[in-house]
């Protein structure tokens, strides 16, 4: 099931968007969340749509693939759409069928909100589809750097995140291994009542935790042996490079916002 979900997954292909500085991408996605709310008429929504669509095209990722991967989110969009249709009672009455009454205002509102949602999802998943988790971490660390002055543990947070990312596959493998070992000892993870199933989790969770602690301990020792003494005086190997294209992308987003402000009612 995990394989079919693409939300939050990195797709390694070549594209301008992939090559962009993660900081630029993070800033743009963050700003986009507000920009989306500027649209309020067909013209502005159209413009947003064109913008999103072009970004998707530039990312070199098959659109059909994205649509397929985000299928489960469409149910959420559909749900909000229906919610608005049924509960907004503005404008002309379009359909009246028993207790279901659809008004023009509701229909328009439903379409707009759904579009907003749709664009947002597409745009944010574009970030994770084109940026490795570690790049996102680096970008965040760099953007949050000023907070260090306020004693916010930016380096520690970034290190924690990157170690977590590195160990996710290892722990997934381990979970599967322990699960199989306990199944071989007669545990059934998929049958029985809810309480039996909950109980079956214990022989899985305890070894998993104990091993994770052991790993953490050994990892800390290994880090210490390689001279880790906290963030003070550390240099950085991973390099973030802000290019012309990043400035351009940011300018385009600003241009879009200005146009949207001008075109909205």
């Amino acid at each position: 099931m995990m394989e079919k979900m693409i939300f939050g997954r990195y797709i390694p292909v070549e594209s301008v968007i992939h090559r962009m500085d993660p900081r630029a991408k993070l800033i743009i996605v963050f700003l986009f969340i507000f920009v989306v709310f500027l649209a309020n008429n067909p013209m502005t929504y159209g413009l947003l749509g064109v913008f999103t669509f072009i970004a998707l095209l530039l990312s070199n990722i098959k659109i059909s693939f994205i649509i397929k991967g985000l299928r489960f989110l469409f149910w959420l969009i559909l749900f909000t759409f229906l919610l608005h249709i049924f509960f907004t009672k503005e404008g002309e009455l379009l359909v009246s069928w028993g207790f279901i009454k659809i008004y023009e205002g509701g229909l328009i509102q439903g379409i707009y909100i759904s579009l907003r949602f749709f664009f947002l999802i597409l745009f944010t998943s574009l970030l994770t589809l084109t940026t490795t988790p570690i790049e996102i971490t680096d970008g965040l660390e760099s953007l949050l750097n000023p907070l260090k002055k306020l004693k916010f543990p930016v380096h520690e947070l970034a290190l924690m995140l990157s170690i977590a990312l590195r160990f996710i596959p290892t722990l997934m493998d381990e979970t599967e291994k322990i699960m199989k070992a306990q199944q071989a000892r007669g545990v059934d993870f998929s049958e029985g009542s809810l309480t039996t199933r909950a109980k079956a989790i214990i022989p899985l969770l305890i070894p998993l935790f104990i091993n994770a602690f052991k790993r953490a301990d050994e990892l800390a020792t290994a880090m210490e042996a390689r001279g880790y003494r906290g963030g003070e005086g550390r240099t950085k190997y991973r390099l973030l490079k802000w290019d012309l294209r990043d400035t351009l992308a940011l300018l385009i987003l600003i241009a879009l916002s200005v146009t949207l402000i001008l075109l909205r009612n």
Binding site: P133, R166, E218, L219, A222, Y228, R234, T235, Y237
Partner: peptide, 28 residues
């Protein structure tokens, strides 16, 4: 150390090798 997994700090091979160098403040 003994366990190959529990001493691999970086997310990739080169990041892992760089980890100790970063700790020592070596220029990039």
């Amino acid at each position: 150390f003994q366990n190959p997994d529990n001493q691999f700090v970086g997310t990739t091979v080169q990041d892992d090798v760089a980890f100790g160098l970063e700790n020592h403040g070596i220029p990039r």
